[in-house]
Design a protein around this nucleic acid. Structure first.
Lengths: 210, 210, 210, 210
DNA sequence: CATGAATGAGTTTTCATTCAT
DNA sequence: GATGAATGAAAACTCATTCAT
């Protein structure tokens, strides 16, 4: 029987980081949950931070993939592209909600590795979003607007349920891992895209006339 | 010059919790930064968690005040009331952005004290938001909609800049503590209230006819 | 009853470093022997290396003092001064033979702290020896000779019994901490000073004639 | 190109033991430098101590050979024999200066294996030195003197440059592995043999008359 | 009001070693 | 002949807390 220690460690780590935070979780707890020796963790990840780093890159590699996958359709319209992107990301987050929670929370502390991750993946993400918004402006799909502030809002909407899972669960009785949450919440963001981000049809006409 | 140790401790704690997280900060680090002995911290707060608890209640007491202050004007219209509430909270967060960051991040870990805080303050907040939304529906100011999902969006927009300060700074070059950020971002949320949450005037008429 | 933990730690450390070497000694062993908690060691010396650093400076501060004390008499003749210096150092080493053994052995490994100690104390020592030799040449007391090579020999003679205590004890049955060793060995080094370093009286005359 | 793992391991070990000491060097460090797996070291040397043992015997086997080679010429005079011995040993140490440093340093810690090595090789060495000195006394070549104290001095002079390589390099700017060091330093020791150990010619005559 | 000294318990990390392959 | 995976044990270090002063 071959036991896949590495995978077991990562799974245990994500689960514990999610509930207790990275610093609040000890290597021993992880080892115990993963049923391996603490030294095995060092064997695969060198040190505790290496485990977090692994989570980061594991998460963002796929995250960027989802974005690029959606971005491929940019020529069929910016709005459709953005909606696809949102759908992709929301789906990805729902599927990996624990990991997403961990990553988003730990990205908010100030550390070398966070800066590295940001300068790699977040900049990439920004690049694609910027492109989509610019095209949307150009093609009169989106109301002209400050791109950084649009990004804040979009990401705020997208990340909120995964950064505040406790709150959703305890206060709003909403569970981001439940089957219908994804489609319901997708509608919400699409609504924001339609109403706040996009021109109304009426406005479009006016813009067109000009 | 009399040194106010307690205040120095709290200031140091907020600053360090902000950059390293609660678990990632040691009593010794705080003591060092506050230029007091570690025993002094224990003297004032008994244990480390007491310090976090202090931050939580200190933050939320005022937070709820801001909400109640705005809510007082509910009879002049739900939309105006909500906008006042958003303005109040945004202003409060901007003024206390480090504390806000700390509180929001630590509210996302699973612990006894977080549950207590939620069942006190978050429920209160929910109560007021609910009231405002209900009135808004009743008075045909807001599009009828699932209240929990509206809360998610509103809070997502409100909290985002303070939960992802690193990202705003490093990737978008936006600084939530700068003078103009507050008014700029307030406009954004108001825009969301006007466009996504509220009826358009046209829609309003139609709704009125029905 | 006030217990002087710091002193107990240093004494224990020297004893264990002497028998097992610095790297071969664990903080726990020291703590156990000193009858304190391991954390107490960290409290006083921060980390293990700090303990070694303390030993180094503790040793060399006094070591240099002994040299300077002897050097004060340089104007009464270089040879007498050098003999006084040798007597002082030999006496100091005999009195602190364990510490001397530890220091000499650990000075032979390559580390940041060793380089620092050398650039402070060893250079000072070199300065004084150089002065004494130069005066000795000038005053026709010593045979002109390469100073570095004289230093090697002198220090070789001086340090040998403390760098090879095992050998002296197990092979030669000589114990550097025994009462008569000091005076016996002092005679040996003085003999070297008289015979190898100094002119013979006969030679001196010849040198004088020239 | 066939890779000779065992040799690579020994070379790496000597180099690392030299800079960090035996206890300060880990199997992993050696494995890394030798570009082999840690298990390979266990494969060849069973345990870490085996590696040190190997170094000891490897060094001392040749060391004793050099002594015996010189001792063979005892009948041509004790002084010449001793000078040959010194020349041999100095040359051997210079050629293997890292190994010599390692061996001499580790011989100063207290351990089972050190005691074994001493009771084998050091006793042998002592035997030959003793013989040479005794002959020297008998043949009126050497001043009668305590043999153990002569051994201390001779070994002190011989070992010093290899037990304090850091010091020579950093403070005196002398490099025991440089081409001319060997012959220069040999002269120094020979000078000690001539001046401190041997009779002066004049003295010899007097001794002869008696 | 505040702290220096000290610690027990816990943390991460390191290490030599083992073993199936 | 050599190694990748894994580990038990121990190492160094950290931490929150206590207590006499």
């Amino acid at each position: 029987m071959k036991k896949n220690s590495k995978e077991a460690i990562v799974t245990a780590a994500i689960s514990l980081f999610n509930t207790n935070g990275f610093s609040g979780t000890s290597i021993r707890d992880i080892a115990e949950l993963a049923k391996v020796n603490t030294a095995t963790i060092a064997y695969y990840f060198e040190h505790k931070l290496g485990l977090l780093e692994y989570c980061f890159t594991y998460f963002f590699e796929q995250y960027i993939n989802k974005i690029e996958e959606a971005y491929a359709s940019i020529d069929h319209g910016a709005k459709g592209c953005l909606k696809r992107l949102v759908a992709n990301l929301l789906h990805y987050q729902c599927e990996n909600n624990h990991l997403a929670s961990v990553v988003y929370r730990e990205m908010s502390v100030d550390s070398q590795i966070v800066r590295e991750i940001m300068s790699t993946y977040s900049l990439k993400e920004k690049y694609y979003l910027q492109k989509i918004f610019e095209k949307g402006f150009e093609w009169n799909e989106f109301r002209p607007h400050s791109i950084p502030y649009l990004i804040i809002q979009l990401k705020g909407l997208l990340m909120m349920p995964f950064m505040n899972t406790n709150y959703l669960r305890e206060v709003l009785y909403i569970f981001p891992n439940e089957p219908f949450f994804e489609q319901k919440y997708l509608k919400e963001i699409n609504f924001w895209i339609d109403k706040t981000l996009s021109f109304e049809i009426r406005e479009k006409k006016e813009a067109f006339i000009k």
